[in-house]
Design a protein around this nucleic acid. Structure first.
Lengths: 205, 205, 205, 205
DNA sequence: CATGAATGAGTGTTCATTCAT
DNA sequence: GATGAATGAACACTCATTCAT
């Protein structure tokens, strides 16, 4: 699967894949600790236990390591996509999602890494695209939930469900960022978000 | 003595202050164009029409230029603080604020600069503090409006008004960031925000 | 006396001379603390409580400050020249001188400053000349004592009294340098020097 | 493992070692010509025919280049240590040593380099230690000769043989320094030193 | 695949000195 | 005489990347 449709995955392939992972993990740690720009390729290689030159056998350059990390981030969204795919009533799904995603964002490393990527995205189109795609998956799934809730009469008929899902994510992620910076417990933040969002979306009785 | 009391500001002082401003403005442009880390002190000096060495007569270092810019950002909040201080009914004030601040955030440079500072704040405590103080002014003013609205019965009795103002700001700023990245018009974003926030805060009839 | 034979020394002249001294004293402290090359002209000016530009009204440049200091060092030799000029028996004079000069060299600042000058002397001919002249005064006076001692029969008839006085100074100054570096008490060093020199110079009975 | 045991020294290792030497030799030349502080890392790299960056693959920094040179200086003492280890009568050994070491010091480069290191030693503890260790080897060997001479009755029973060996070295090195500065031939200096030292140490008949 | 020596432009910062005020 | 802004070359060092082995 690493190369072609078949699966001849030799030991060599496996060893190589392992190296890649070592490097990626090391890079994540470095980027978290010191930031993307402050991290040198040497730092990554050293931390990964790989020679400097060899790193370039696995990645074309520092930039591409970040790109790959951004792509891995996307996989982390899977559990939340699954939650959003559930067929329970929309408000229930929504609440469950907010709490789960909020818990995930309570880990500072997830926030910092995202900010690091966000920050690069502004000037680097490929990362920007990746980042938007990442977000889109989540937004789309969330939007679908909202639409379903509206149709089922479980949610208020908001004018633009897509914008709303964006806002829901913003409000959570913004809270997460502030909780990293100012040490407000994420738990408290999530509680407020749930209340705020529900108040905005639940239909007037 | 150079600042306080009357205004003994000599020509020399004025020239010096002008230089500082030249440098700061040049730095803002550079940071916007290429980002803080990609910008060299040389770039700033050149753009400011100042010699490299002389820049260091006006600022202790690159870092401090960013700090000063962050401090200037704070002053930009003044008009919005004024709006929030108005004594009209809370929902009116709120809407006016959202539109005004949204309009301000429609300028990509304001968003990018904020992100640049945000991004440094994570690893540099002095900038973090400055950044939080900056935000606090706005949050506090907004919180006051919310409290007043609640007391007047104009707004729903939310459990934690401070968190709510944070969320309102997040939702606006997050939208602004996405509008920079994905070219969604900020106008549309602000519309959704106003609806979303009002739906959440206006009391059930 | 500062300029011409007369003595119109105005207040202005006195103030200026005071400034010069302030600068020189500050420079000595800086050179001792951080070394000549590590010391910046700014450091000296700041320490002297003088503006950077003004320092250049008093001295043509950093180099010349060092030259002046080297010249002042020469004056410090006066007391020892006086000791050597005494008409007591040569061995007595010699011992007294060794102890007095040794005591002077026990102060690390005197040793370090000399080394700093010595070290510059290698590459800067004007300092080299000054330094040699400095030393020559002492050597000549010491040589005179030796010659007198030899003629009086109080000292061994050494082949080259001038070389001998050089060596006597070397042995003292070398000891002083080591005492700075390795914390051997200078007192002990001087004792050994006196014994060593006397043994070499006193005539066999 | 690159060093110990047999000699697996690959071509690569050898090439690397050669580079190090090139750099060290270039550094010595630079330090002699212009002094440690006046020499830029670029100067060294250029003279060594090595790129600036690559120099940092071989040495952590400029300081460490000097340290390594100081360490190499120590090896230069080997021949003199051998002379001092000879079992001939102490006065003979002493004279032979003085002449040999004096001849070595007659080369200005040896004197200047030592002064350069000496001068750094004052402010840099690691160099100070290295420098003292260097000197100690010579002093100890010389002290041993003196002690032997005293026991054999070939030398005067001096109170502190260790101090005496220090002084002997000081007198030689001081002479060498002056011969560099004032162009007095080292030959003449050494002659005087031999006389002076012997006069001090040979027992009264 | 693996290594680390090699490159040289680039980093932020300091320097001694000048000069308009 | 006194000030400190102005200059730009120089500083030690780091960078992402290449490539011979």
């Amino acid at each position: 699967m690493t190369k072609s449709g078949k699966k001849p995955a030799t030991n060599r392939d496996k060893a190589t894949a392992k190296r890649r992972n070592q490097i990626l993990e090391a890079a994540v740690i470095c980027f978290l600790e010191r930031g993307y720009h402050q991290t040198g390729v040497r730092d990554i290689a050293t931390r990964a236990g790989v020679s400097l030159g060899n790193l370039y056998n696995h990645f074309p350059g520092k930039h591409d390591v970040l790109v790959e990390i951004a792509m891995l981030e996307r996989q982390e969204m899977e559990p939340f996509l699954k939650i959003l795919a559930a067929q329970s009533p929309a408000p229930k799904v929504l609440e469950k999602f907010l709490k789960a995603y909020g818990k995930y964002l309570a880990a500072p490393e997830n926030v910092i890494l995202t900010l690091e990527i966000t920050s690069e995205a502004i000037r680097q189109p490929d990362i920007a695209q990746l980042f938007l795609e990442n977000g889109d998956e989540l937004t789309n799934a969330l939007t679908a939930v909202l639409r379903r809730g509206i149709e089922d009469g479980d949610l208020r008929r908001v004018p633009d469900p897509e914008q709303v899902s964006q806002m829901i994510l913003d409000v959570l992620e913004g809270g997460a960022y502030r909780s990293v910076l100012s040490k407000v417990p994420m738990r408290k933040v999530v509680g407020s978000v749930v209340d705020f969002v529900q108040a905005s979306l639940l239909p007037r009785q």
